[in-house]
Simulated assay, not measured.
Amino acid sequence: MSSMNKPNKPITIKEIARKLRISPSTVSRALNDHPSIGLVTTMRVKKLAEELNYEPNQTAIFFKQRKTFTLGVILPKLSEPFFASAISAIEEVAGEKKFTVLLGQSLDNPERELNIINSFRTHRVDGILMSLGKNTTNLDFIERLRKYEIPIVFFDCVPEGVDDVPKVYCDLSTGIQEAVQAFAERGHKQIALINGPETLKASGERTLSFKKALLDNGLNFDDKYVVYSDLTEESNYQAMEKLRDLADRPSAILAFNDYVTFDIIRYAKEKGIYLGHDIQVISFANYSLWKYMDNPPLASIEQYPAEQGAKAASILLELLDNKDSEEIIQDHIFASKLVYQ
């Protein structure tokens, strides 16, 4: 093979040292602006390094610093607008600290979720940001990650009863209170809630907040107006069928998230129900494109995905900077808020 076809080998610190007749350690210090190396030597080293197209050996640097400068992020679905906003904020915060973000979506499958965690661990990510899938019940991975000194911060969908792991999430009770008040002010008395999976503790808490909001606005609570969905299209349609079969049909619906609301809109069109007249809807999550639609929800409950993502990333980076600290970082809770389209 001719020399023209041979790939160029990366320039090493040793080669720079040989050409300048100084020690490799001096070259290394000069490239890192160490104060023990004189200005003239530093300039000579950097000039030659630039001429030779020298690039630092990142693997060696990572090994020395015990960092790979990567963060793993695990989400239920990357396609959801909520998580798209969160990811953008996470990458911005991580990028400011020269960290790269690796993404994985669990699709609400606990086995897939665990495989992603194990993959991140074997790839030596420095830390993990995670929003739990709705079917996740086994949290043993938290302790395993702790043994490998990989900190984890949960956001949005967070585990219950885990006090020693930082969590960032939104208090939905404030938004629910404002939503029910908005319905009540418009004369609605039969108000329904299409909730998430009944097995989730968060769904139970959402129902309690809904009940309290009704009572605070002088309205009766009837559990027949609370229906549950596993958030699939079929389950959302079934939830609407249950409400439509009631003798006293609801005139207002509070929907679990924007995807549920999309299915409500499609169901209404199929059944000849006029949104905004026959029934009014308020949705969680505040989908950014509602303003471009002909029949958007009356309002949305803002859950601040970008702010949640940015805060979770900042907490994780703080943990990485202070690995030896025994101080427990407190959970950060955002108050949800009703916003009109």
Rank of each mutant, 00 (worst) to 15 (best):
R144V: 15
A306Y: 06
G127Y: 06
L48W: 10
I333W: 02
L219A: 06
K167D: 04
S251M: 10
L52W: 04
V260K: 01
N109F: 01
N217W: 11
D258T: 01
A184S: 13
A60M: 15
N32G: 14
V260I: 12
T70I: 09
N236G: 13
Y228P: 02
F256Y: 06
T42H: 03
Y274I: 15
T137E: 14
Y274E: 15
T70V: 14
G272H: 06
K98Q: 13
A252E: 02
T42N: 10
A310E: 06
P76Y: 01
K269G: 11
I11N: 02
F284E: 02
L289M: 13
N53M: 13
A202V: 15
D230R: 00
L39D: 10
M43H: 12
N115H: 05
A49K: 08
A30H: 06
L338T: 00
N236V: 05
F120H: 03
K337G: 11
S88I: 15
G175A: 09
K269M: 14
K271S: 09
K337I: 04
I329R: 06
I74K: 02
G127W: 03
V73R: 04
R249Q: 14
A17D: 09
F83T: 00
K47R: 11
I90Q: 04
I176R: 00
A335W: 07
D294W: 12
V27D: 12
Q181C: 08
R121P: 06
D331Y: 10
A17G: 11
Q58V: 12
R18N: 08
D324I: 03
F256L: 02
E96D: 08
S88R: 09
L200H: 08
D33K: 11
Q330I: 04
Y225K: 04
I90R: 03
S28E: 14
S79Y: 04
P159K: 07
F210N: 01
V158Q: 07
E51G: 02
E160V: 12
E318Q: 07
H332D: 03
V93W: 07
L289R: 02
L317S: 02
I61D: 06
K337P: 12
K64T: 13
L200Y: 04
P297L: 01
E302T: 01
L338M: 08
L139Q: 08
A49D: 05
